[in-house]
């Protein structure tokens, strides 16, 4: 393995990891507040990919990107209102089943609306610009993904730790009943959490699909599960942890694919999960001292 090949793969891994990290944040924040795995999050991410395909046909890319983000937010909050809100006081298993149901619905809906054939993702020229350093070729999106991820994470961490809204979110994740007594509108906070999660998922989907070129109805389910695993690896409820987990999962996947065991690239994530749950169930950064959202 030459050095340039190694760097090339590392960059690919970082790029994939960046996209995973953004999706993992959505999982970790929802889990922090509602204590549920939002199984539909991966499918929201897939839908966001389709939104872009259709948005780009009617508008230029610089309007299409915000439009896609808004569309994804609307979808995510709609799901929260319809499928999760009525089950606030229900047992956790019912909420999880509801989430699985939404995921099933979105996949079938995508299958119906956009057919099962993979559709090609639009090439946004500004993201597809290719740089060449010696024998390494990188598209701009590959370089942009990890940087954008880290910037967004920093903004989010500041939001959670320094603002009143962030304080309310932390309060809700600690104890919803007490938060409600203190005058926090818990339902609004939950909606805001979904808005943030969906925004990041939409950005993640642009980064992810620009590199992969096609979208199909099931292209959200496995990445979704992997991103949840990433959130668990980093410590569930912890935003920097989710980012760390996302990068670990992304880089591992690229490394395994590059060494010729691509069959196991999906399975390895779950092996990692079982190992982590065995060795350090709270994840890498999920110490009690770190505040959870």
């Amino acid at each position: 393995m030459t050095l340039s090949y190694f760097i090339q793969q590392l960059l690919n891994g970082l790029s994939l990891g960046g996209a995973y990290a953004l999706i993992a944040i959505g999982y970790t924040m929802v889990y922090g507040i509602l204590r549920m795995i939002n199984f539909a999050h991966g499918d929201v991410f897939m839908m966001s990919g389709y939104f872009m395909i259709y948005a780009i046909t009617v508008m230029p890319w610089n309007i299409a990107i915000p439009a896609v983000i808004i569309g994804t937010i609307l979808l995510g909050t709609l799901i929260e209102r319809v499928a999760y809100k009525p089950l606030r006081s229900a047992p956790r298993m019912s909420v999880m089943i509801s989430a699985i149901g939404v995921s099933y619905l979105l996949e079938n809906l995508a299958n119906y609306l956009f057919t099962a054939m993979p559709q090609s993702y639009p090439e946004i020229s500004i993201l597809k610009h290719v740089y060449t350093f010696g024998s390494i070729t990188v598209s701009r999106v590959t370089l942009l993904a990890p940087i954008l991820t880290i910037i967004l994470t920093l903004v989010l961490v500041l939001l959670v730790n320094k603002t009143k809204l962030g304080m309310a979110m932390r309060a809700c994740s600690k104890d919803q009943d007490t938060a409600r007594i203190m005058g926090i509108k818990v339902d609004n906070i939950i909606t805001i959490t979904f808005v943030i999660g969906c925004t990041l998922a939409a950005i993640g989907s642009i980064l992810y699909f620009t590199d992969r070129n096609t979208v199909q109805p099931y292209s959200g389910s496995l990445p979704g599960l992997k991103c949840f695993v990433a959130a668990v690896i980093g410590g569930i409820g912890n935003i920097p942890g989710a980012v760390l987990g996302g990068f670990i999962v992304g880089i591992c996947q690229i490394v395994i694919t590059a060494t010729g065991y691509s069959v196991f690239s999906d399975a390895f994530t779950f092996v990692l999960l079982i190992i982590i749950l065995f060795v350090k169930p709270s994840g890498f950064l999920g110490e009690k001292a770190i505040e959870k959202v």
Partner: peptide
Amino acid sequence: DYLAIATLG
């Protein structure tokens, strides 16, 4: 939920 995701995995 950890059990769910681990068995799914």
